[in-house]
Nucleic acid binder design. Structure first.
Lengths: 205, 205
DNA sequence: CGTACTTTTGAATCGCATCAAATCTGGTGG
DNA sequence: CCACCAGATTTGATGCGATTCAAAAGTACG
């Protein structure tokens, strides 16, 4: 299966050596399917290429705790150095993953300098984005989060949305209704320019 | 200056080779001091050993956007592979940092396998923690965030706080008042056991 | 052309933020 | 040892903003 055609956006996958690529397996995923469970011996590193996978843990009181929602890219990176998985991985929306044998993945990181550099800078970028997102979610008002998002994820004070507004709202930790209303308010008072997918901050002293 | 005595908790720093350690500099920091500015050529990797450093960017509308608050450990990891810093670093609370020449740091990552492994697993752990935090901050109620925290950061459904409750509240994205009240409510309805610094979830079917 | 989903607006409610203030705590210096 | 201070902890009252529930209109897709 030519999974590489599906992974244009995943820069990391491009740097993977042919040897490791041969060991990779493409796997379509069904909703509700479990990729691994807490305590399972670590066998594979997974990369989501379509759909959504969730890392979950059962809380003491029975509630399901979502540790991560992955809608693309690697997940459970921290597991790579452990012996077992520390949570369950459940498919939330059908799609596909690519999976690499964990040992081969570690070996490649040890031997292949280019792959290793790509992996480290991938992790570092991830860290930066997540830190920014945490700071953002710490802000109390919808307006503040929107401005923070545009300023930290956008370029030159503007962004072009690639996702739906509903999905953006979820990323901002808001209901979609709250996002729509906040956007309209910000547009009304002139701090924001909203034209279709392009949203820009107005300069304002 | 023997900065290594101060860095007990920083597991990474322990794996740094003597050669790189010799190039490191210890620096005390004053409130308001700027370690680097957006656009500055990248010279150093910094590690907070005391106090607090903030990575900030000025928003278009004049507001200050906090990208990260670091109260210990490395920050701006993503800068390591760039040529310039992508934000300002300002000291928010006085303390100290250790700084490493960026080129020497990169060289060490390339040559020293043990250091590199420690760095990669440090980044991976960071990613996992931050993902969990983002999921947590996405939860709408104080109670949910508290349970999520105990379940994802604690062991066996319990945590022992090392920070003040006020600081914990900030980490949970709540005001300290909201945290106090939520704790009392959870204790009253029996889902939580609070004894001084030890907070445990009760099993409950 | 129908179905599913997003976008948009409305109304009511609730929980958290905010402001205020009292108590408790640990640490400093007289 | 005590007085004092800064900060943390705790409780109360109030208001605002986001959630929630509801529903209509727009849009993409088979």
């Amino acid at each position: 299966m030519d999974w590489q055609a599906l992974t244009q956006g995943q820069s990391i996958l491009g740097t993977i050596s042919p040897k490791l690529q041969d060991l990779a397996a493409y796997q379509e995923t069904q909703s509700g399917e479990t990729l691994f469970r807490l305590g399972d011996r670590l066998r594979f590193m997974f990369c989501v290429v379509a759909g959504e996978v969730r890392l979950v843990r059962r809380a003491r009181n029975g509630a399901e705790i979502v540790l991560q929602r992955s809608r693309g890219g690697f997940f459970a990176e921290a597991s790579l150095y452990g012996k077992t998985y520390h949570c369950d991985a459940v498919v939330a929306k059908p799609g596909a993953v690519v999976r690499f044998p964990a040992q081969a993945f570690r070996d490649a990181l040890g031997k292949d300098a280019a792959f290793r550099d790509a992996w480290m800078s991938h992790l570092a970028r991830e860290v930066r984005q997540l830190r920014a997102q945490s700071e953002r979610l710490g802000l109390k008002s919808a307006a503040q989060r929107i401005v923070h998002y545009i300023d930290s994820e956008g370029t030159g004070g503007a962004i072009t949305l690639t996702e739906t507004r509903k999905a953006w709202a979820a990323e901002l930790g808001l209901t979609h209704e709250a996002l729509y209303r906040a956007l309209r308010r910000l547009q009304a008072d002139g701090t924001l320019e909203v034209r279709a997918e392009r949203i820009a901050l107005n300069h304002r002293k």
